[in-house]
Design a protein around this nucleic acid. Structure first.
Lengths: 144, 144
DNA sequence: TTTAATTAGGACATTTTTGTCCGATTAAAT
DNA sequence: ATTTAATCGGACAAAAATGTCCTAATTAAA
């Protein structure tokens, strides 16, 4: 569904948000350990997310990553996917046809549109805050 | 959603089925041209589909690929996806967690399950015959 | 002011996916 | 029988995705 990079990105952001809500800034190492991802690769993804304003990064000793509560409530799953994977999840034909559309549909166009619209709605309505809810309480998990 | 290989595979099978219903066996070249795919790469995918009994191949001059009407009605989109891409579309967590399940769900587990189940149902109910319906009549397209 | 901890970012390495080439095999047509 | 048109399958090549390493820049703490 998503690239590995995007999966790590989502997990990382949820972890950062979860810790930020507890008032804690987290380091790259801590993040990678918490979400079970390759450190240096995760760094690249976080750079990308930071440049796009989805997370805040602080350099230097005792630096790390954090998010304001406002952003935690504003930022949607779709924003992360968009930054890391672009729009290929939403756009693009299920059969890989470049010019598949309602006027020239592929054989499964209409059926796929339904599923994709549903996925799109899910990504656009789910905030980072929503995703952190289960994490602290042990209802949902970010590794293993 | 699917790999390129799988996309080519689906388009190829729909084209083969469409032509088979008109009593015509088709060559690799004709297929690749009709669905706008790389010839040699398409050959690999068709070998795989042929080995798995999803299409019939005939060697030698005037050989090519074909499907019986029975198989055209039996074979589902899910069968092609399964052979080419395996089960990664159905199984596997949206966030890439190895052990995400109903007991240890990731933060978006339940929402994703819904979308994926819908996709699964679509793939399992759509037969190749269903997909060929629009192709001859110009309602749906396999290239461009 | 030096040291230690940290992110930023470029270059490189590995793996996977996608794609090509060619010789072997098969079978129809000449 | 020979030629020709086809698939089969192995080896190779290129591109994209994933992952690593190292140096520079930054900042808090000693």
């Amino acid at each position: 569904m998503f690239s590995k990079a995007c999966e790590y990105g989502i997990r990382a952001v949820v972890y950062i948000a979860h810790k930020s809500l507890e008032g804690q800034r987290v380091s790259l190492k801590e993040i990678a350990d918490a979400i079970d991802s390759p450190v240096a690769f995760t760094a690249k993804i976080l750079q990308q997310l930071s440049r796009n304003g989805l997370v805040d990064s602080v350099k230097g000793a005792s630096g790390g990553f954090e998010m304001s509560e406002g952003r935690i409530r504003e930022v949607r799953l779709a924003d992360i996917v968009s930054v890391v994977d672009g729009n290929r999840v939403y756009e693009g034909c299920g059969l890989g046809l470049k010019k598949c559309n309602e006027h020239k549909p592929c054989p499964v166009h209409w059926e796929f549109v339904e599923v994709r619209d549903r996925l799109k709605a899910l990504l656009e309505t789910t905030s980072i805050h929503d995703m952190t809810l289960g994490v602290g309480s042990g209802i949902s998990y970010l590794k293993r």
